[in-house]
């Protein structure tokens, strides 16, 4: 192999073209099974199972997820819910629901006034870019909801 050969650079455009072409091809192949994945409907159904007919209100929840996740295998999720966490007024459950995974249930946490603060961090899997829902159920039975869009990427090197 000549030095010349070694020194030849692939331009960034070459690399992007290579990666992009592969990507479109994969997206095409993957489209069919993707459509069969759980979507909003299943997320709605799960939410109904979890909180019944209660209509969740917006607010009280701070949901922290990176807009762009480096790897869908471990996306950091931070949740905190405004609450005094007293015996009379506390968050009793926090549910994480996926709108884009094969199954919508991610995790359900049971809290108590002994927590002092309704704040959780965990890592979840995301099969693709999607909306994540978090529902908090209060001790009086009321519920709150937050949603966040997350883009999931797998880079050129899988």
């Amino acid at each position: 192999m000549s030095n010349n050969e070694n020194e030849r650079r692939l331009s960034r455009r070459d690399l992007l073209v290579a990666a992009g072409t592969g990507l479109v091809a994969v997206a095409g192949i993957a489209l069919a099974p993707r459509a069969a994945l759980a979507a909003e409907g299943e997320a709605d159904k799960l939410m109904a199972d979890l909180i019944g007919a209660t209509k969740p209100a917006e607010g009280k929840i701070t949901l922290t997820i990176p807009e762009l996740a480096e790897n869908g295998g471990a996306v950091p999720v931070g949740i905190s819910v405004e609450s005094p966490m007293t015996d009379k007024d506390y968050v009793k459950a926090i549910h994480i629901i996926s709108e884009g995974n094969p199954t919508p249930n991610v995790a359900s946490y049971t809290l108590s006034p002994a927590c002092g603060k309704a704040s959780i961090n965990m890592r979840m899997r995301m099969a693709k870019s999607q909306k994540v829902r978090v529902v908090a159920v209060m001790s009086d039975g009321s519920a709150y909801i937050a949603r966040k869009d997350v883009k999931v990427t797998t880079g050129g090197c899988g």
Partner: peptide
């Protein structure tokens, strides 16, 4: 290389 998610 991509059994998992692609940019979608």
């Amino acid at each position: 290389s991509c059994p998992g998610p692609v940019v979608a």
